[in-house]
Each structure stands twice: as C-alpha cells, then as structure tokens.
Amino acid sequence: MGIVLEKLFYGDLRPNECILPANSEYLSLDQKISSLMDAYHKKLSPEEYDELENLIELLGQSTSIYSAAAYTEGFRLGALIMIEVFGGTDLKGGSSE
C-alpha cells in the first residue's frame, strides 16, 4: 500500500491520463466530433470558428469539473464500502442504525 501513497504524494499517480473508454460508441462519437469540427472549420469565418472553439473549451472545462466531482464521490463511496466490509458490519440485512 505504501507504494500507492508515495506515487500519489509525488504526483506520479494520474488515473485521468489512463482512461480510454472501450465503448465503441465513444470512439464513434469522437470520430463524428472530429468530422464536424473539420466541416465547421471550412464553413465558418476564422472569427466564428474561434468562438466555436472557445465554447467547446468552456464545455470541456465544465465537464472536467463535473468528472472530478463524480470521481471524488465514487472514491468516497468505495472507501465507505471498504470500511463497512472490513469493519465487520453485518451486511446480511441487519441495520447498523
């Protein structure tokens, strides 16, 4: 366990850089986005295309913030589950309250 904590401390643990959804729909959507961006690049004036890129950048930032919050909440839930499992709480229907 110490190795994971050290990697986290030194900034060597970056799970967000290892994520590549295996879902074929994701890859298809990514290709469609690229094709549409190419089409808009040809269709719009440079100023209009810059505005579109700025909008997409803002959406990306918003999505990133939401994803970080979802990751954090998922991690917390996972930790709570581990505490419950290793804490010996009766998981067979008994309530701990």
Rank of each mutant, 00 (worst) to 15 (best):
K7T: 03
G78P: 00
D12P: 00
N16H: 12
C18I: 04
L29C: 05
I33R: 14
M37Q: 04
Y10A: 11
Y66L: 14
G74A: 04
L13R: 00
S28I: 03
Q31S: 11
A70W: 06
E25F: 05
L80E: 10
V85E: 09
S34W: 02
F9D: 14
L55A: 12
G2K: 10
S35T: 13
S45L: 04
E17A: 05
A79L: 13
Y71Q: 14
R76C: 07
E47Q: 12
L77D: 07
M1V: 13
S67G: 03
E6L: 14
S67T: 14
G78N: 04
E25Q: 07
D90E: 06
G2Q: 07
E73P: 01
C18A: 15
S34A: 15
L58C: 05
K43N: 06
V4W: 09
G11K: 03
D38K: 04
S34D: 15
M37G: 00
I65Y: 06
L27Y: 07
S28P: 00
G78Y: 01
L5Q: 11
L27G: 15
E97G: 09
A22I: 08
M37C: 03
S95A: 11
P15V: 01
E51N: 15
E57G: 05
L27S: 13
D30M: 14
A70Y: 08
D30Y: 05
K32M: 08
L55Q: 10
A69E: 10
S95I: 04
A79K: 09
G87N: 02
G2C: 03
S64R: 10
R76D: 07
D50P: 01
I83G: 01
A69V: 06
G2L: 08
S96I: 05
Q31E: 15
E17G: 01
L8F: 11
D38Y: 02
P15K: 00
R76M: 14
K42A: 15
D90R: 13
A69Q: 12
G88Y: 01
L80R: 08
E25A: 12
A69C: 05
N16F: 14
I81L: 14
G78E: 02
V85F: 08
Q61C: 10
I33F: 12
L77Q: 08
M37T: 06
L8C: 06
Y66F: 14
H41V: 01
Q61H: 13
L55W: 09
S95N: 11
G60R: 07
S34L: 07
P21Y: 00
L20R: 12
S64H: 08
L77E: 11
H41Q: 13
G93K: 02
L44F: 04
I65P: 02
F86T: 12
I83C: 05
Y71M: 15
P15G: 00
L77C: 11
K7C: 04
Y40C: 07
P15Q: 00
G78V: 01
S96Q: 10
F86G: 01
E47M: 03
S28L: 09
